[in-house]
């Protein structure tokens, strides 16, 4: 289970990278499209087929941010209960809380763009916490994952 925890932690970090890449791709794509005469307004933004290079970035960012990452992060938290690694639950909780903050900021920033500043910075915090979680699993060493072969953590009296 420790391996699952570790993999999930790195998957979260990887997804955060995807998020950054997707939104940058979309943003530059949009800029280039507007430079070439494209016009964007609310109605066009919501339509299914505004097509410019990078438009998928917005879709990916929204879908990963609101659905995929929260689900993976919950799985990470569950796996942390079984990981038997010092600090696993703590780091998983940090990742959960940071993710919750990120999702909230991402949604609120629609109405208060300045929150986007925190959202961007928060991504680095989330990325760092996920990496830390993954590295904790490694640093503790690797006793076998099967609980039966693991030394009891409580002294036998």
């Amino acid at each position: 289970m420790r391996m699952v925890y570790k993999v999930l932690a790195y998957v979260v970090a990887g997804l955060v990278m995807v998020q950054a890449a997707a939104i940058a791709f979309a943003q530059f794509g949009l800029m280039a499209w507007i430079e070439q005469g494209g016009t964007l307004d609310a109605a066009a933004m919501q339509s299914d087929d505004v097509s410019f290079t990078g438009v998928a970035g917005y879709m990916i960012h929204g879908m990963f941010g609101e659905m995929v990452i929260p689900i993976v992060v919950l799985l990470l938290l569950i796996s942390s209960f079984f990981a038997r690694t010092t600090g696993a639950v703590k780091w998983a909780l940090i990742v959960v809380v940071t993710t919750a903050v990120q999702v909230t900021l991402g949604l609120l920033a629609d109405g208060a763009p300045a929150l986007g500043i925190l959202h961007g910075a928060g991504a680095l915090v989330l990325f760092g916490s996920a990496i830390m979680a993954g590295m904790r699993a490694k640093a503790t060493g690797a006793p076998a994952e099967d609980a039966s072969t693991e030394p009891a953590a409580v002294p036998v009296s």
Binding site: L74, F81, A152, S157
Partner: peptide, 19 residues
């Protein structure tokens, strides 16, 4: 010893159920 090990097994299971 068994009395103290039982919760140790169940804590992660319970925590998972809580979620």
């Amino acid at each position: 010893s068994r009395g103290r090990r039982v919760p140790r097994v169940w804590v992660p299971v319970l925590a998972t159920l809580v979620i």
